[in-house]
Structure formats: structure tokens, C-alpha cells
Amino acid sequence: MECASKEVLIRTFQTEKRYLLYGYFYPSSSIKISSILIGIFMLVYSWTEFFSMVAVLFVEKDNLTKLSETLLFCMTQAAFLCKLTNFLSKNKKMFKIEEILTSPILTNLSHSEMVVLDNYIIEVTYLGRLFRVLCILTVAFYGMFPFIDEDPEHMLPLPGWFPFDIKTYQYELVAAQTIGIGIGAFINSTLDILPTILITLASAQFDILKERLRTVMKVDERWEISSKIVKKRLNNCIMYHNFLLQYMKEVESLFSNGILVQFAASVMVICLTGFQMLLISVKSMQFILLMIYFSTMTCQIVLYCWYGNELMYKSMGLSEACYMSDWNMCNSEICTSLYIIMERGKRPLVLTAGKLFSLTLTTLMTVLKSSYSYFAVLQRLYSKND
């Protein structure tokens, strides 16, 4: 084995770590007053924007169109704040996650294993960048929306209640809300990409583990000597598997509740976005804006479900990898060890959101179906009121 750098796995989410450190949201051994102040500012700003939208829900409670539009953004903001609060309450677990990722058992990789890891990292990095581009486009379009839309009612990017005349301070409020959208998109996208990268690292490691199990018998020495080598390799594979299970247990514990809130909010947000698109002209700027917003919110849950499903699929192949090794050439002791690994590998590693449902493509379809069901109900209510 060629020993890779201890920081090789940590570097994969270095960008997300650096972004979260700007507001002191990521745990750090060194305390920076400036980062803490920036974090407090972001939190206060985001909560103020949220309560401003909540006030509109009470003021416009009899207007279904306005109510659905406000609830759309209110649910997005609420999900973001809940995810951030959950991460802040448990972010010390990142120390444990980093400790596992820097352990020699996971970083002692050969050149071919590093290639496997790099391929996974490249894929998730590109998808993460695509998601960030969608977030940036959303922020940019919402900031410009009040000035390019012909509807005089849309004076601000977001619905909000203010105790003064909006027309008098329109430019100031547009700038303030755009900053709020930017803060939410910046932190929220980071909190989505970080767990996605961590899950992808586990999928890559399972691929490496399966390859080690397939080739565990391939030695050139005499059988009396190679039997000891095979036994040592199997013990390393068992330790490797235990580390991966412990690693994913920490990841799930840190992000599970936040993902649950995000999925619950996404059902409503996708539904309400579709409902809003139904009410407006396809030629309007608002329709284009909602299309971008819809794509961003859909991409958000697709990231979790796709990579959660990938992890489940990769963890299911341990039994097959053991069977594909030359087990018929080894002694009974090694066969017993392989059998135990095969039995343990029959149960796939499935990530859950709040211990309620799994992060799989089946769950993604359930979310989309639920969104459509609520959309149909809203459409029917609107038709009756109309």
C-alpha cells in the first residue's frame, strides 16, 4: 500500500468548511471574534426576514394567491434556519468525522484506490458547483425581478411586511432582501453540499473495500505463508468496514434531522412553486424566475436521494465481493471469516432522515408524488374560489 496524505479526505470538503468558518458555524479550535460577529449578523438578518414573511401570512390570510406565494418562500427560509440550528447544535461531531477520515486505516490507499476516490470526488464536485450556480442565478434574478417585472404589485423580491411605505424605501428594501436571499443561498447550499460530499466519500470507500475483498487471496508466496497474509488482510478489511460504519453513523447523526426538515419543506415548496407557475403567464419574467427556483429546490433533494441511494447500492456488494474471491483455496478459518463478512454485508447501509424515511430514489419519487397531490388540491381550491 502507498500511504496517502492524512488530509486527502479532509481536503474534499475544504471549500465548504472554509465557507462555514466565515460565520463560525463550523467548529474550530481557534476563536475569531470577527467570524462570530459575522455569524450573529447572518442569523439575526435571516430570522428578521423570516418573521417579516410570517407577518404577511396573517395579513393576507384570505388571499389564496398571495398566501401561497408567501408560504413558498416562508417554508424555504424556515427549512434553512432549522438546518442551520441543527448543525450548530451538533457541529462538534465534525471533529469526530475528521478524526475518522484522517485515520491510517482509511488513508492508507494504493495508487489505483486513489484513482477510484478521485473519480468520485470529481463527480460530486461538478454537481456541487452546478447546484451553487443555480443558487447564484436564483439570487441574481430575484434581486433584479422588481425592476424588470411589469406587475406593479411586485415591488420587492420577496413578500414581506414593513411598518412603513414600501414605495418610499423600495431600493433600500430590494437591496436588503437580496442580501438576505444571498445569505440564505450561501449557507443553505453549503449545508447541502457538505453532507453530499461526506456520503460520496463513504461510497468511494465501499468500492475500495469491495475490491480489497475480491483480491484478498491473490498472493505469490507459498500457501503456508500466504495464509497468514490473507488473514491479516481480512482483519484489515473488517477494521475498514467498522470504520466506515462508525463514520456514517456520525454523519447521519449530524445531518439527519436537518435533512428531514428539508424534505418536509421541499414537498410544500415544490407544490407551491408549481401552483404559482399555474397562475401566471408563461411569457412573464416571474415564470422564468419560478422555473429557476423550481430547478434549484428539486436539485436540492435530488442530491440527497441520489447519493444516499448510491451509498446503499455500493454497500450491498460486500457479499458478492467475498464470493468472487478465491475462497475455495483457503482454509476453514478464513472461510469462516469470509462467511461472517458476507452475512454482515447482507444488510445494506441506508441513511435516514430523522429515522423516518430513507434517502433513496424511491423516497425522491414519494416526495414528488406528494408535491403533485398537494398541487392538485390547491388547484381545485383555487378553481372553486375563482
Rank of each mutant, 00 (worst) to 15 (best):
residue 112 S to T: 13
residue 100 I to L: 12
residue 129 R to N: 12
residue 114 M to F: 07
residue 125 T to S: 14
residue 65 T to P: 11
residue 116 V to Y: 07
residue 89 S to W: 08
residue 139 V to F: 05
residue 140 A to E: 04
residue 56 V to S: 02
residue 90 K to W: 04
residue 161 W to Q: 02
residue 117 L to N: 01
residue 128 G to A: 01
residue 73 F to T: 03
residue 156 L to N: 04
residue 113 E to L: 02
residue 118 D to P: 10
residue 85 T to M: 07
residue 115 V to F: 14
residue 137 L to D: 09
residue 124 V to M: 04
residue 112 S to H: 13
residue 101 L to T: 06
residue 79 A to F: 04
residue 69 E to G: 15
residue 147 F to I: 10
residue 139 V to M: 03
residue 92 K to D: 14
residue 157 P to R: 00
residue 149 D to C: 09
residue 92 K to V: 10
residue 150 E to F: 14
residue 100 I to Q: 06
residue 91 N to C: 10
residue 164 F to E: 03
residue 119 N to Q: 13
residue 80 F to V: 08
residue 164 F to S: 04
residue 108 N to I: 06
residue 47 W to L: 15
residue 108 N to H: 11
residue 151 D to L: 03
residue 169 Y to P: 10
residue 94 M to P: 10
residue 60 E to M: 07
residue 111 H to P: 13
residue 134 L to E: 04
residue 90 K to C: 09
residue 59 V to P: 13
residue 113 E to D: 04
residue 134 L to S: 04
residue 69 E to Y: 15
residue 88 L to I: 08
residue 144 M to S: 12
residue 141 F to T: 06
residue 90 K to F: 09
residue 59 V to K: 11
residue 52 S to Y: 05
residue 119 N to R: 11
residue 105 I to R: 01
residue 159 P to Y: 00
residue 87 F to E: 01
residue 118 D to S: 14
residue 122 I to C: 11
residue 104 P to R: 00
residue 67 L to I: 02
residue 85 T to D: 10
residue 150 E to T: 15
residue 64 L to Y: 03
residue 77 Q to K: 10
residue 124 V to E: 03
residue 143 G to Y: 00
residue 135 C to M: 08
residue 140 A to V: 14
residue 116 V to W: 03
residue 70 T to V: 02
residue 156 L to K: 00
residue 143 G to H: 00
residue 52 S to W: 04
residue 133 V to K: 02
residue 53 M to E: 09
residue 125 T to M: 07
residue 66 K to W: 09
residue 115 V to W: 06
residue 164 F to H: 03
residue 144 M to V: 15
residue 125 T to C: 10
residue 52 S to T: 11
residue 160 G to F: 02
residue 136 I to T: 13
residue 49 E to G: 15
residue 46 S to R: 00
residue 57 L to D: 01
residue 48 T to S: 12
residue 107 T to V: 08
residue 156 L to I: 01
residue 76 T to V: 11
residue 76 T to Q: 12
residue 133 V to C: 11
residue 54 V to T: 10
residue 163 P to F: 04
residue 137 L to Y: 07
residue 138 T to I: 05
residue 130 L to H: 13
residue 103 S to F: 03
residue 92 K to W: 10
residue 161 W to S: 07
residue 103 S to E: 07
residue 141 F to L: 13
residue 154 H to Q: 09
residue 75 M to P: 13
residue 141 F to K: 02
residue 134 L to W: 01
residue 59 V to A: 12
residue 52 S to V: 07
residue 117 L to G: 06
residue 146 P to V: 00
residue 71 L to N: 09
residue 159 P to L: 00
residue 159 P to S: 01
residue 50 F to G: 06
residue 163 P to A: 03
residue 85 T to W: 03
residue 61 K to N: 11
residue 89 S to D: 10
residue 88 L to D: 07
residue 155 M to K: 11
residue 149 D to M: 05
residue 109 L to I: 00
residue 76 T to M: 13
residue 142 Y to C: 08
residue 110 S to D: 06
residue 71 L to P: 13
residue 96 K to D: 14
residue 164 F to A: 02
residue 126 Y to M: 12
residue 85 T to Q: 08
residue 115 V to P: 09
residue 61 K to P: 15
residue 162 F to Y: 11
residue 110 S to C: 09
residue 142 Y to F: 12
residue 56 V to H: 01
residue 91 N to H: 07
residue 91 N to Y: 02
